[in-house]
């Protein structure tokens, strides 16, 4: 009887995604230590900035700079290693920044995560955090992260 065989294959597809004007400006703002949102027709501020509002199906308009501090809306501490993601443990949070109506995703740094119980206690929903910007920005999501407010 022939042994069953296997092929290991890798999908080496490459993409060059057009970001569009709105996302490009949002990312440019990160290099200037600014978080930009866009106001919807019903007055909400979407962060990150989007050119359209999927709730109303209308274009967004005014650019709005939101604050650099906010509160945690949800969080997790990741202990499982995933290919392409940071070496665990690391904390991922969604933060509602001052002046924004949607929460911005990012890493939370500067907290000892090895003791899970203490880390969870420090990261409760509603906890105040602030945005920390990279000193060497490159115009990507790596340019910012959150840290607990002192």
């Amino acid at each position: 009887m022939t042994d069953a065989k296997f092929y290991e294959q890798t999908w080496d597809l490459q993409y060059k995604h057009a970001l569009g004007e709105t996302t490009s400006r949002f990312l440019e703002g990160l290099t200037q230590q600014k978080i930009w949102g866009r106001r919807t027709t019903d007055g909400r501020v979407l962060v990150p900035a989007r050119s359209y509002d999927d709730q109303t199906h209308m274009p967004t308009g005014e650019w709005v700079e939101v604050g650099n501090s906010g509160t945690i809306e949800m969080f997790t501490i990741v202990y499982e290693p995933f290919k392409g993601l940071p070496v665990p443990p690391y904390a991922l949070v969604y933060v509602l920044l001052e002046g924004a109506d949607t929460a911005l995703v990012g890493y939370l740094k500067g907290l000892d995560l090895k003791n899970q119980k203490d880390a969870i206690a420090a990261l409760g929903i509603g906890t105040k955090v602030y945005v920390h910007f990279s000193k060497t920005p490159v115009g990507s999501a790596a340019d910012y992260w959150f840290e607990l407010s002192k």
């Binding site: 995604h17 057009a18 970001l19 569009g20 004007e21 709105t22 996302t23 050119s51 359209y52 199906h57 274009p59």
Partner: peptide, 25 residues
Amino acid sequence: ENKKSLEEIIFDASKKVLDSLGLTI
């Protein structure tokens, strides 16, 4: 189309066809 993202051209087409009929989503 390098100036707009895929999501933006989808939005544009959706809005355009609805606008042509005077409809909203």
